[in-house]
Design a protein around this nucleic acid. Sequence first.
DNA 1: AGGCGCTTGTGAAGACGTGCACAAATCGCG
DNA 2: CGCGATTTGTGCACGTCTTCACAAGCGCCT
Lengths: 256, 256
Amino acid sequence: MSQHRHPGAPGRAGAVPTLPDLPEATVARLPEYLRALHNLADAGHETVSSEGLSAAAGVNSAKLRKDLSHLGSYGTRGVGYDVALLIEQIEYVLGLTQRRAVALVGVGNLGHALAGYDGFASRGFRIAALLDADPSRVGEEINGLVVRHVDDLPTVAAEESLAIGVIATPAAAAQQVADQLVAVGVTSILNFAPCVLSVPEGVDVRKVDLAIELQILSFHEHRKASLTALPATGGTAFTALPGGFAATDTQEAIGT
Amino acid sequence: MSQHRHPGAPGRAGAVPTLPDLPEATVARLPEYLRALHNLADAGHETVSSEGLSAAAGVNSAKLRKDLSHLGSYGTRGVGYDVALLIEQIEYVLGLTQRRAVALVGVGNLGHALAGYDGFASRGFRIAALLDADPSRVGEEINGLVVRHVDDLPTVAAEESLAIGVIATPAAAAQQVADQLVAVGVTSILNFAPCVLSVPEGVDVRKVDLAIELQILSFHEHRKASLTALPATGGTAFTALPGGFAATDTQEAIGT
DNA sequence: AGGCGCTTGTGAAGACGTGCACAAATCGCG
DNA sequence: CGCGATTTGTGCACGTCTTCACAAGCGCCT
């Protein structure tokens, strides 16, 4: 092995957090790899090949290898990757070695569900506070946490360092909540409200919008429908495809 | 420009559904434009410039223009885009002229919230059925819909043509549900379960995973933290930003 | 009518992401 | 010890997406 100045030294984070700046696309896939790796570990595998892991994560094996190579990963040629080590590596890079505190704002329909979602806890996060602007909701207990008023954010932030804010309010309130989050030092926001947030530089926003996902699927439905109507480029306007839909197969897998 | 054989003829879908095959990246943004356009329409605007619309949708104006140009859009130079017309265009392309029926499988924590989410109805979709595998949940009424057993899927599909299936079950059940959905002819699936689904060609799957989003944010947090540790080029490691944070608005917008 | 300012639509260049295909490395076995 | 089977890591070519910059078109004003 040459020098391989392995970047993050998960074994011991001495004082050189040389985070390689990964391509954004790679970052977006790492969590998927991580989940697949945990599954493999639970199933008792100690090593896994790029082929095996990529299948479990639903990607191309070359892509997987390139992704892992970006974080200076340790695989052994002829053998594969050490599952436990790789988990450690990825968790380190993703900053999951510390359990980050999440503030959830908006305990309505969706927020309520998120508050009860166990995927938070099981994947490296801890809901530190539930907040809502509606006084009638304040005081309600959900999943062991008491809902506080959103104006208490400064207090909450003083109690513990909030890393991430989740906005699950109606669109109309989202921008104001975002401002409040930013004001108390939150620099990462996950926004479920269907609107664009404007935040200062240095603050990351990711958006999840249910309706958008559905509309994208709708487009592909529409497309598939119109394709079965006019099958090919050439002539032959109709194929009818009566009852069955059979094997209309064309490739798929929508890019993220 | 020459003929502008405008693609979808939203006015009248005569018999030529010449869906242009849009770049996937464009498709993913169209819903955002659509939402922004609806806001503008509600605010009374009749036309909007690419600059204005792109700001409302949180993208670059050149990108917006190129996106719209792909669907053979109608803007007027020197004026802008006709809001109502553009809405019609985009809705047509996305296949939203018909209200698509959605089957929601898994009425647990998250599924319950989704069932009550009004963004479904308001943005072109209709929940046609709630399904669950747990017999103790069958019969429960949510938001005016009665939960049926997932094995009734064939019956449900016979009653009305299901376009899209939403999976909100635990990961362990997701693949089986997906198989069942595919078996009754569903060709688009929105998967909230944290696992990879394998489906036949021709079936589109989109995945939404809360924990993944958080982990991506976590990476950027980690990164920002390690950058402030080694201030590097800029200098001034700390800006403190006491109370105020001013209006530095440049949104971040992480690539999807 | 003509000119001027504004805005769209797009060519071209560059950045980014993907996938192939293969050399380099490692293990196990005879 | 050497060889073959296996699997990683990566150079390269290709396709997609983004962004700039500007010509073409449109409306308005004089």
